[in-house]
Design a protein around this nucleic acid. Structure first.
Lengths: 239, 239
DNA sequence: ATTGCTATGTACGCCAGCGAACGGAAGCGA
DNA sequence: TCGCTTCCGTTCGCTGGCGTACATAGCAAT
């Protein structure tokens, strides 16, 4: 159905006034992304940005020894490729598809041109970037102060907020990569949540059974990020 | 002497073309900052931005239980108050003076006006913000993967890069607050560095004796941030 | 159904950093 | 000079997460 093909399922695109959107629309190309796809590599100049509609993209810092840590996630509320309008054209982090789905791709130069019109688009992208900064800052704090259990809750909730369904396709191994911890640690933490009846796990599929229960366990980091996203990004879809 | 009073000791101001600088100059007010001064409080709307010249400002996330963690530091290469041009007007983090010195203060509305001219100023501020993002991301990674010893090295080097001298006035208690660890942990880590002849500690004063030695011990996080700052912020002072 | 791979569960020793408690010493002010 | 405050050093037991190793169990392809 038509709605399924609407770029305006992405919140940033949805918030654009008509004229700005119509300038961009012809250049938005729908792309299907599958788990593990890379949208940006460390230090590599980016040629496009991506507006997710129903996928989730992780921003990961990768270390010399191969260990990685997720520093933020992006879903339909955002955009992948902020370095293009911030001016750096690349970042030291990678962008990896964490949950398969669709996105709309836009050429980097067109993005910059529209950004430089000092339009609503610029306003939206900058506010979004500030929200993203908050997420990264809170990730740093959480890494320092909170238990793996709580971090897993935070991670699950952040992912759920960006998905239309209550299930995510994700192995414990992958979650461990995201959080930058051991796989065994995730097994144990997930086991606790499962025994508490909050989630149900089966071979690469996590179902959330009791979201309020998760929210009761999660550390404040999730709430801080959530509120800041609401505050900064609660613009209305224009007529 | 006159140079001491030059706002262009701040690199961002220094990089402005003449006309843009002259629009701002009359509104830049020099302020003396002392250790512990707060330039921004969590959630509070900011009225000014600050361009440090020889002080260091820490951006801290404070948790409900009072624990805090530094997510980035700002010196003469940057600006405190990015939320003002990013659009949010406030952030969930605090900005605290970590090393006393001077800065130039600018009214938030004037900043926004100049930013919205889509001028060099905007270009510089956005690039700086991207560098800051890298610092925050790398802080998150470092918090996850590296030992307190290495983090202390990283912290010392990041601070040194922003100071004209080889000594910092800083108690171990404060460093612990910044890093989000116990004071005893800092004592131990600093003791190792001292025994290795890299630093010398005396009651609130740290002298760096062997900077290459520190660089040899520090984790890659420092290097990544350093390189990204160099890459993004190596613009020339215009005639 | 069998095979084989991948995902998950569990166990064990290890260590960095935590929390708490205390002693000593450097500096400051009276 | 004395006394008080702040800062630094050290200890001890504890625990969360690490590294390693191995055992089971879904799922898919043959």
């Amino acid at each position: 159905m038509a709605l399924q093909q609407d770029p305006r399922q992405n919140h940033l695109l949805a918030a654009l006034p008509k004229d700005e959107y119509q300038r961009l629309a012809p250049h938005l190309k729908r792309v299907e992304l599958t788990l593990g796809d890379s949208l940006a590599e460390s230090g590599k100049v980016m040629r496009h940005v991506y507006f997710p509609v129903d996928c989730i993209v992780s921003l990961l810092c990768v270390m010399d020894d191969g260990d990685s840590t997720e520093i933020a996630v992006v879903g339909s509320e955002g955009i992948v490729g902020i370095a293009l309008f911030m001016g750096g054209e690349s970042t030291p982090s990678r962008a990896i598809v964490q949950s398969a789905g669709s996105a709309y791709r836009l050429d980097g130069q067109l993005l910059k041109d529209e950004f430089d019109r000092a339009s609503t688009f610029q306003y939206l992208l900058l506010r979004y970037t500030q929200a993203l900064i908050t997420q990264m800052a809170q990730t740093a704090v959480c890494n320092r102060h909170h238990s793996l259990d709580q971090q897993l809750c935070r991670w699950l909730l952040l992912s759920l907020d960006r998905l239309p369904v209550n299930e995510l396709v994700m192995t414990q191994e992958l979650i461990a990569n995201m959080l930058g911890v051991r796989r065994e640690g995730v097994t144990e933490a997930a086991g606790k949540l499962q025994r508490a009846g909050l989630i149900s796990y089966r071979r690469g599929h996590i179902s959330i059974l009791d979201r309020p229960g998760l929210e009761a366990r999660v550390c404040e980091c999730y709430t801080v990020v959530r509120k800041e996203y609401d505050r900064l990004l609660s613009f209305h879809r224009p007529g």
